[in-house]
Design a protein around this nucleic acid. Structure first.
Lengths: 151, 151
DNA sequence: AATTAATACTTGCATCCGGAAGCAGTTCGG
DNA sequence: CCGAACTGCTTCCGGATGCAAGTATTAATT
């Protein structure tokens, strides 16, 4: 067998990079704004949505997680007033998740913090071109799926 | 502020790609060899280690997880006979994790399966050059850390 | 129109995980 | 030497997550 097939190493490095970055960024992010990384991505999806609101199913699809996780993640965010539930007049099944004014403020602050942290990650050894190329390559995986919130 | 800073989008896409790939690969991998993705990476680290054995601390560091997680992951793997505990004659604190013969067989099979799955992921729209470049860029994050098991 | 299927969401259950605390063994500093 | 600090590992506890089952509502089929 040929051992120079680059597909497996690429995947291994992707998982490894993610684990590294999450363990590096998560604690700081949580201590600054009281938001877990998953909650940041949760709120960011809503903030980037056309009407700043999303059905729970769509949120689950965009975050590649289960519906039950969305239900449970939404609860504390509602309690802390960052998010609120909104009904659909045409379909009584759906419950939109929308940002409150407080939520919009908080996600903007958290995003700014996160942006600074992202800059730090790439500060050494990375040119703008490298970063752009990495971003472009990674974007291919989910290019066809809804919810690409990278500006 | 400039909104074309590529660092934040790159990180968002990385997390997104990982979530997508894990949700895509994990079920199939588990159903084929009865191994979770984390367990595959666990075993792969040992298989790639110089003496095919690793201290639990080192394993935790390489997988970017906690020591307690290593303890708990090792248990079922010992029970199913893929892995066994080995003492260090010089330091009674350490408990190496080593592969059994069965474990070596299983990880080889699982790796082959995983390699095929990785090939599938990149089958469309990716040239070998693209994959190699992605792999190289991702490798920068953890280049200085031990445990880069990408061949 | 009524039955059936499909969709959106929630809840129960089992599993997985990290951090703090605890224990055993080793190293350091006097 | 001997106690204090450190290291490796495990256990306990709270929190997060996926899957399957349950409920409510809408759509499809006949």
């Amino acid at each position: 067998m040929s051992t120079d097939d680059p597909a497996l190493p690429a995947l291994l490095r992707l998982f490894r990079a993610q684990a590294y970055l999450e363990s590096r960024l998560s604690p700081e992010l949580g201590s600054v704004h009281g938001l877990a990384l998953n909650e940041l991505l949760f709120l960011l999806q809503i903030a980037r949505a056309p009407l700043q609101r999303l059905r729970r199913v769509d949120l689950a699809q965009r975050l590649h997680t289960s519906q039950s996780t969305i239900t449970r993640m939404a609860l504390p965010l509602e309690k802390s007033g960052l998010v609120k539930r909104e009904a659909d007049p045409r379909d009584a099944r759906v419950a939109y998740v929308t940002l409150t004014r407080t939520g919009r403020t908080r996600i903007n602050e958290a995003e700014a913090t996160f942006r600074r942290m992202a800059d730090d990650v790439f500060r050494d050894r990375w040119s703008e071109k490298d970063i752009a190329q990495l971003s472009s390559l990674l974007g291919r995986f989910t290019a066809a799926l809804p919810g690409d919130i990278a500006e």
